[in-house]
C-alpha cells in the first residue's frame, strides 16, 4: 500500500507539469483553433524567467567591509546585493532565498506580453490556414525560441534553488499513519502540486464564474454567433492566449527547482504534453487535466522495479503505448467532445 501511495505521489509533480501545459494547449486550441507546437517553449521561457529574476535579485556591487580583514590585514572586499542594501540584511536575505516563488510576479506580465506578441504577430495570420501549416510555423517558432535561450543562457542546465524552508524531504508516510521512513517526499514537489492545483482551479473558476469566462466559453462553442451579438471575440481570445502562455510559464517557473532549467526542456515536455492533450480529448479542459495527472502517475508506476522486471523498458514507452491504445479504442480521447478536430 505504501509503495502504491509513494508512486502516486511521485507521479504528481510530473503529472502537474503535464496537466498545466496541456491545459494551456487546450485553451489555445479550444479558443483559437490553433495547434501550438511552441507551447513547450513557453514552459521553458517560464523556467528561465525564474533564472533571470533570481539573477536580477542577486545583482551586486562590491563594498569594502572595514570590520573584516583578510589574512594580510587588508580590509575585505565583500559582494553586497542591492536587495540586501535596500531591505537590510535579514529581509534582503529572505527575498533572495524566496527568489523562485517571487519570480511568479515577474513571470506573469512577461509571459502575458510574450503571448500577446506571439498571437498578434504570428498566429493571427494562421487562423485560416490548414492545421499542418500551424504546426509547422509554431514548430519553427519553437526552434527559434529554444535557440535564443541557448544563445543567452548557454547550453548547460542552470541550477535554481527552492527557498531554504522547502529544501529537503519529509516523512509523508508518518502523517498518514504508515511506518516511519516508508514514504519520504520532497517538500518542493508537494508545493508544486498544490500550486498547480490552485492554478488549475483558478483557470476553471475564471471560465466558470466570470462574465469574461462565460463569453469565452460561448465563443468556444460558437464563435460566429457570439460575434453577431456584437462582442469582439477576437480580442478576448487574444487575452486567452496570453493567459495560456502565463499558465505554461508559471508551470515552468515553479518547475525550475525540481529540474534545473535547460534550453531543451520545452521540447522534452512538449511531445508528452501533446500526447496528454490527445489522450484527454482535443478541446476538453477537464480531459487535459485528468490525462496529465493520469499519465504522470502511470509513468511513475511503470518505473517501479517490480514492474520493470516483468516488462523491461515499459517505463520508457508507457505514455506512448497508452496514447496509442486510447486513440485506437476511443478516438475522441477520454473526454473529447463530438465534432472537435474531426475530419
Amino acid at each position: 500500500m505504501d509503495a502504491i501511495i509513494l508512486q502516486i505521489l511521485n507521479g504528481l509533480d510530473k503529472g502537474s507539469a503535464y496537466a498545466l501545459i496541456a491545459l494551456g494547449l487546450t485553451l489555445i486550441f479550444g479558443t483559437l483553433g490553433v495547434v501550438n507546437f511552441a507551447h513547450g517553449a513557453l514552459f521553458m521561457i517560464g523556467a528561465f524567467c525564474a533564472v533571470t529574476f533570481s539573477k536580477i535579485l542577486h545583482s551586486s556591487y562590491t563594498v569594502i567591509d572595514e570590520t573584516k580583514t583578510d589574512f594580510l590585514g587588508n580590509p575585505l572586499k565583500v559582494d553586497m546585493t542591492y536587495v540586501e542594501k535596500w531591505f537590510g540584511n535579514a529581509a534582503g536575505g529572505t527575498i533572495l532565498d524566496w527568489a523562485v516563488p517571487l519570480s511568479i510576479l515577474f513571470a506573469i506580465p512577461v509571459m502575458i506580453i510574450i503571448g500577446f506578441v506571439m498571437e498578434r504577430g504570428l498566429i493571427k495570420h494562421f487562423y485560416t490556414r490548414p492545421h499542418a501549416d500551424q504546426i509547422l510555423v509554431t514548430f519553427g517558432l519553437a526552434i527559434v525560441l529554444q535557440e535564443l535561450i541557448k544563445y543567452f543562457y548557454g547550453a548547460n542546465p542552470i541550477p535554481t534553488g527552492a527557498p531554504e524552508m522547502f529544501r529537503g524531504s519529509f516523512d509523508f508516510g508518518a502523517l498518514l499513519g504508515f511506518d516511519a521512513n516508508t514514504i519520504i517526499y520532497p517538500y518542493w514537489r508537494l508545493v508544486y502540486f498544490v500550486f498547480s492545483a490552485v492554478i488549475i482551479g483558478a483557470v476553471f473558476s475564471f471560465l466558470r464564474f466570470t462574465t469574461f469566462g462565460m463569453v469565452v466559453r460561448a465563443g468556444m462553442a460558437d464563435r460566429e454567433t457570439v460575434g453577431l451579438l456584437g462582442i469582439n471575440i477576437n480580442k478576448r481570445f487574444t487575452l486567452m492566449f496570453g493567459m495560456a502562455a502565463a499558465v505554461a510559464g508559471l508551470a515552468g517557473v515553479m518547475y525550475a527547482p525540481i529540474n534545473s532549467p535547460n534550453y531543451h526542456m520545452g521540447m522534452d515536455f512538449l511531445v508528452l504534453s501533446f500526447v496528454v492533450v490527445v489522450v484527454g480529448g482535443m478541446g476538453s479542459l477537464p480531459g487535459a487535466v485528468l490525462a496529465g495527472f493520469l499519465l504522470g502517475i502511470l509513468e511513475s508506476f511503470a518505473s517501479m522495479n517490480e514492474i520493470k522486471s516483468i516488462l523491461p523498458g515499459i517505463d520508457q514507452i508507457i505514455i506512448y503505448l497508452v496514447a496509442i491504445i486510447i486513440l485506437l479504442t476511443r478516438p475522441r480521447g477520454l473526454m473529447g467532445r463530438k465534432g472537435v478536430m474531426e475530419e
Binding site: V278, I317, A323, I324, L327, P331
Partner: peptide
Amino acid sequence: SGIYFAILTLAFAQMSFNL
C-alpha cells in the same frame, strides 16, 4: 488523420527511440 496521425507517428517513433 490530421493532428492525430502526426501524434501517433510521433509516439511510435519516440517509442522506438526510447526502446
